[in-house]
Amino acid sequence: MKTRRTSHVLLSLLAYAVALVMFFPILWMLLTAFKTEQDAFSITPQLAFAPTLESFRTALEQGSGYWHYAFNSLFSAVVSTLAGLLLAVPAAYAMAFYPSRRTDFTLVWMVSTKFIPAVGVLIPIFLVYKNLRLLDNLWGLTALFTAMNLPLLVWMAYSYFKDIPRDIVEASAIDGAATVQTMWRVVLPLALPGLASAGLLALILAWNESFWSLTMTDHKAATLAVYIASFKSAEGLFWAKMSAASVLTVTPIVVLGWFAQRQMVRGLTFGAVK
């Protein structure tokens, strides 16, 4: 009994330690963001330092462009998520509640497009966008995010719809509801928590996306990913500012992820975990 108790305490301590190690780079970034550039760029890590908001001030000031990039990130993430849901929900609804012989094929096809790597379509999309003047265009980028997340959204929405008992949908039909009424008044309210978490995941993926942003935008439609990437060549002098900008970029999504973690898992496991 004694050894069990000891091992329990040790394992708990190990869990804390692991959590701390995993979180440490984020913590370090957070601390650095509150340092002066001198403290940030120091051979001996400064743990005791006078916190300053200076880096945040420079990161946010006029001319830093943060707000421009933040708007682009927010716009492309939110609009692509909403558009994705708007496209995915009706399709998933049709497949879940009115399956035909082609349903399985269509669903698998839609999901499988997720597994075309972005580089597989990069070149034609770049060239077509160039001709259509969609390069460095926020709508063009948003459409790409939509396409990127659509397969996942279809799958997640489908698995949430599948969980709604057929009986309830039939009861609603017998109660006099038309297809659209059933969808709005019965199915959507029931699937809403699931759809919301699917939307959150899409939002996170779009916000963090960098491949398309780096290749398809320059300045006008550039997102925070591009902004942060511009610190790539920053040597020493800008670590605090880079950290501050990173904190400003990462925090909203990490917090969102904290709250949505549980709900996201179920949709992502493709129904393997109930």
Binding site: P165, D167, I168, E170, A171, S172, A173, I174, D175, G176, A177, A178, V186, P189, L190
Partner: peptide, 20 residues
Amino acid sequence: VAPRDRDIAMVFQSYALYPH
């Protein structure tokens, strides 16, 4: 005729109550 226009009511084995 669609179910909603048949003027019938049904009690399901699972009851199929609307949970929300």
